[in-house]
Design a binder for these strands. Structure first.
Lengths: 252, 252
DNA sequence: CGAGTAGTTGACGATTGTCAAGATGGGTGG
DNA sequence: CCACCCATCTTGACAATCGTCAACTACTCG
């Protein structure tokens, strides 16, 4: 909690306008002028360490958060210590959108590795969006995008086999990392097998077995957290194939 | 497509301010004045018949739609005729929110029974929301609510057994119908077993078997589409119980 | 009244979860 | 710097839920 000169100085430098994530994050599509006004309300990146919480289920909602560096896991704690992993979030991704309705956080967010998080006070963002139509519209789009993403997950969990789920997960990571300038075929997973399984609705053991099977089939090479995708096309083919039980079904 | 005097007259009468759904729908929390301005942009309810589409996957996005009477199914058509049912929508519920991002409808919406649908041109809604802060905030909340709902479904599909899924579905219908002034324990389902199964990620046969099992256990009485819930408490207990495979799991 | 669709029920099998044991590796303290 | 320890991961054997296939019934609609 020490707030040295160095960190403050750093915080000034990581203004949105200088941020490499500008095209992925909130400022997307804003004018230089508007981005500066956005900068005024965004609180400096907070450095958090593995296991630290960005917010917790039940806390009053004040701000949205953007991952600046590192990665974040959102999850819904269930009774008796269990949890349901809702998502993994990479730099530029916005979290906390589900809390707007009830003004209370309905899930928790914890960082998977040392991470920097930007805080965007929501009431100030709303006020600003009232004066900047393009920002207002952009927020609508971001919320809509989140809905679209959830919809995809619904299909994944409702209709796809274990194999297809893991392949879809790996491809999703691949694409998102690629957008951030990293290798789409060679990366480190910041989450555990357990978390992956929980997220995909599978047992840890199933995830583990699938990793080895994929490796045996030459789709990838895996060593602990390190994954190398060797055949992106084959994986795409895996996830694109018709859902389980999709024979001729007329339900008019 | 005939547009008789009678229908026009009717359309005038079903203005938002007279609508019994006002507390469920967009106008929630607006002043009388603001509701009248909203009325100006809402196009009259369109009467549609079973199987008619409100919009289709791939169409350009222009409007949001509100179910006024009847019920609507949203679904994502998959390749080769299959489909993935995304949701069932009752009066007062808003559909099309997932299309805002790409400005293209990413799912299709079809009515399950004769239904009236209100059309809300989105660009006009956005313009209006720019002038009415409470409307703008309300739209944020609606979008956030949709995310919250999807999140619940994610948990249902990812962690719950067939039994729990069907119980949760029936209770959801029960609560939503109750909010609309109908019986929470005695209602008709407007969707087929096939559609229920598809929505819940289950085979038709499983849904059918569960209905009979629930009936045998005295939880409900079912005759085709007609359902009578006999023991709401027991059903609540069913869905509230800890998810599948939720033993002591530490995943720090 | 006939035909086709929706729903139900039974038998069977496959995918995936559960339980259990062992392997691997990172972190910590001596 | 090494060794131990514990969490994570892997692998195997088994079980259960749920999907698939098939046959049959019962509506509904023309």
């Amino acid at each position: 909690m020490t707030e040295s000169k160095v960190i403050s100085f750093e915080a000034l430098r990581v203004a949105c306008k200088n941020c490499s994530l500008a095209t992925l994050c909130l400022p997307m599509g804003l004018t230089t002028d508007d981005v500066e006004r956005l900068d005024d309300i965004v609180k400096r990146a907070r450095p958090l360490h593995r296991g630290d919480h960005v917010f917790r289920n039940g806390e009053r909602f004040h701000s949205l958060y953007v991952v600046k560096t590192g990665s974040v896991k959102t999850y819904a704690p269930s009774t008796e210590g269990g949890e349901h992993v809702l998502g993994f979030h990479l730099p530029g991704e916005l979290i906390g959108l589900d809390a707007i309705e009830k003004e209370v956080h309905v899930c928790s967010a914890t960082v998977l590795e040392t991470s920097a998080i930007c805080e965007v006070p929501f009431s100030r963002l709303v006020a600003l969006s009232g004066r900047i139509p393009s920002l207002q519209h952009h927020i609508y789009r971001l919320l809509s995008k989140e809905i679209g993403h959830d919809t995809e997950m619904l299909l994944l969990l409702g209709k796809k086999s274990a194999e297809e789920r893991l392949a879809a997960f790996l491809l999703s990571m691949s694409k998102r990392l690629h957008k951030r300038g990293l290798s789409p075929t060679d990366f480190y997973l910041s989450m555990s097998r357990h978390e992956i399984g929980n997220y995909l609705g599978l047992a840890v053991e199933t995830v583990s077995r699938l990793f080895t099977r994929f490796q045996d089939e030459g789709l990838l090479k895996v060593d602990r957290k390190h994954v190398e995708l060797l055949d992106l096309e084959a994986m795409e083919a895996l996830v694109a194939r018709a859902p389980v039980g999709d024979r001729r079904q007329r339900m008019s």
